[in-house]
Structures are given as C-alpha cells and as structure tokens.
C-alpha cells in the first residue's frame, strides 16, 4: 500500500510537523512507497518542485506525483512519476509511532551495520560537558558533575553520582527513565517535563534513585 502525502501551505510548519512524525515513526517510513499529492501547492510558483526535493532529502521513497499539471514537472526528474488524476483516498492512515527500543529493537536493513542504540560512557562527565545521544539509552560508569548534562532519547543510567542534569526521552519517549546510584542532581527531565532539585527535597539526597513519568508529572523514588 502506498502512502499519500499531501502538503498544505505554508510549507515550513508542515515540513517541521513531518520531521517530527518521521523522527517518532522512522520504522514506518523505511522503504514505504509514497505518492505525493501536490493539489494544495500547485498554484505557488516553484513550490511543487521545491517540496519534492524536501521530501527526497528526508529519505522518502517517492513513486508517484499527482494532483498537478504535468507541465510543471516537465524537465525535472519527477516527470516520469506523474500520475493522471488522483488515486482513490478511501481512508486516512494513522502513522504508528515506533515501539520503545527496550521492547523491540529497530529492524535494520541487512546491508547496513546495526544502528547503535546504546551509548556507554566509561569516564566521568565533567562540568561543562554534554553527552547527547538521541538514538537510545546512555549509561555512564562514572559520575556526572555539577554543570554537566546527559541528554538521551531513551533512558539514562548513571553508576556514579549524578550532580548535573539528566534529560531522558527527548524525542517523546514517555517510557524513558533515569537511574542513578547517588542522587545530587540539579535537574531531571523526561519527555520535556522537568523537576529541579528543590522539588524533591532532602529525603532522596545522596541515595540511589530513579525517576519516571507518571502521566504529566515526573516521579522520583529511592531504589532501596
């Protein structure tokens, strides 16, 4: 089944929304044949071709272009992809999000090396340093200093003391958690929701702890 992509002007916010969707549903878009319906943007000079370029750079596999005068595509590499009329559009597809990496690792094409879904940092993360890993979990064997930060698409595991910031689930992963052996953190965040140290008080100070998302709030508990 081909996916019909129909942009709506203005293009910039539409493309931004598409980027977000692709980021959350990479698996869904891999090798998915795409038919582009340009009816909504056909009157804007240059817009149809520009838009097709945008889609190509995002790795979408365009097999057809519809809803537009054939002449517009003449001379471009899309001329062969022109489709007469519009394909039937009997139902909207709900694009599913990728399952969280812990449950099912992303299947990868056989020709490519497996994508790294876990980053292990074997030394202390010093003040002023940022470890940013959006593809999955981050494990730090040392401590994370005051003024340092770890940003992960998945969960964060710190086997030393956490004195800086830990930001987990940055790409909308609500199942992401933060674990540390000793909690002195300045800030914890999961999927955009954050808590600063003054929220959790002295009770957890210096103890092994975890943080997770419970609906719309970050919860913390000792790991003992």
């Amino acid at each position: 089944m081909a996916l019909i992509v129909a942009p709506e002007p203005p293009l910039a916010p539409w493309l931004a929304a598409l980027d977000e969707q692709i980021a959350r549903s990479r698996q869904f878009f891999v090798d998915r044949p795409v038919v582009v319906n340009l009816a909504a943007v056909q009157d804007q000079v240059g817009a149809p071709l520009e838009f097709l370029e945008h889609l190509t750079t995002r790795g979408l596999n365009i097999i057809g272009v519809e809803g537009i005068d054939r002449a517009v595509l003449e001379g471009s590499r899309w001329a062969q992809a022109w489709v007469l009329g519009a394909t039937s559009r009997d139902r909207l597809v709900l694009v599913p999000d990728d399952p969280p990496p812990a449950d099912a690792p992303e299947p990868v094409p056989e020709t490519e090396p497996p994508a790294q879904t876990h980053l292990i940092v074997e030394r202390p993360v010093r003040s002023g340093q940022s470890i940013i890993f959006e593809a999955g979990d981050v494990t730090v064997l040392g401590s994370v200093a005051s003024g340092a930060e770890i940003i992960a698409g998945g969960s964060i595991h710190i086997y030393g003391a956490l004195r800086g910031r830990a930001v987990a689930g940055v790409q909308g992963n609500q199942a992401a958690r933060i674990f540390c052996r000793r909690l002195f953190a300045e800030l914890l965040a999961i999927d955009g929701l954050y808590r600063t140290a003054e929220h959790w008080g002295e009770g957890l100070h210096g103890r092994p702890a975890q943080a997770w998302l419970d609906g719309e709030s970050v919860r913390l508990a000792a790991l003992e």
């Binding site: 030394r123 010093r126 003040s127 002023g128 340093q129 200093a145 005051s146 003024g147 340092a148």
Partner: peptide, 16 residues
Amino acid sequence: EVSSVRDSDRIIGLLD
C-alpha cells in the same frame, strides 16, 4: 569549597 571544585572539574574536562 564548591565553586572551586566545580571550576576544577570543568578544567579537567578541557585538559582531557
């Protein structure tokens, strides 16, 4: 004291 320790930590990161 804490400010000196954090600044030293930053410097160690730069040394590395």
